[in-house]
Amino acid sequence: MNGLTLDPPAAGPGPLGRALRSTPVAMALVVAVLILGFGALSPNWAFLRTSNLSTITLNVSVTMLLAVGITMILAAGELDLSIGANVVLSSVVGAKVLVALSGTPDEVRAAQYPDLALGVAAGIGAAVATGAAFGAVNGLLVTRLRVNSFIVTLGTMGIGTGTALVLTNGSNVPYVPRLLQTEFGVVRLFGVIPYPMIVVLAISGVMLYVLRHTRFGLYTLAIGSSREAAERAGIRTLPHVFRLFVLMGALAGVAAFLDLTRFATTNVGGHQTTALAAIAAVVIGGTSLFGGRATIAGSMVASLIPVILATGLVILGVQAFWQLIAVGMILIAAVAIDQRRRERLK
């Protein structure tokens, strides 16, 4: 009686078949096509210059980091709309701590930073701690009040932005040492890899490992796929979701500090569309909006697409309003083609 097959064993897709079916690979192809296309169209292949490609990675770094975090959140079937506000608030707190501890008010006003090392260390700590605390608030509201995370984070988005404005009166924190920018924020290793990107790649690598190879990652996907099934398997889903929001918040805190080094100031009026940009990149990269399926590599690759488009269209001299139209159309086309292709391969 043994060995009764319930279904003819499906010819499991080989490595090549799997790759062709995978959205990250498809999006990598889109990226390659865009790069080569813009290269060919741009004067003197200006788009393909190392300096340009390197700058694109610098410009994408913060979005990519946030997209990696959002991948984990979406994997669990949750959403975080507050990450832009979190970046703003965390950078404000980080900048204030950094400036306050780097020297006396008179010293920093005169661009003197006698205790810069202390200030920077404390500033990093303050930014990440603020981000994590912001995430913890989201996590508590989602898991304790059992309010949908879309609504919770829509609410905390406003609260975070408002708090940042209250703390700063709406103007950016002044006297952030420009050294952060000239020694780190826009500097490239070997003239190629921007320092912030190194941080982002390192963190993304860890997160990729966590999602693919650890219990934490598997439980995240299980919760997103079926919370009921995860609970029946003995997984404590609410603490897990809470930890995911704290993790997301901490990543937003890191992003906040990277932002600070990049611009040598805070960005209290900015990051209004950051959350949407990150979520869009994650979904375009192949992660399900409804949880259970997630790919960090896909998110990383897809987050490149809008920046490549923006850069390429400016280099081609496309007029600003047409850029908006072109970006929208290309994004929709890329995802539509990917979907058709996957359906055909099934």
Partner: peptide
């Protein structure tokens, strides 16, 4: 061990992952 009426499987996880979920 329990076989639930609704099965309690996570549809996006693999068969092996489901069988070990919580006790990998």
């Amino acid at each position: 061990e329990t076989v639930y009426q609704d099965l309690a499987l996570a549809p996006d996880l693999s068969v092996a992952e489901n069988m070990f979920l919580g006790r990998e």
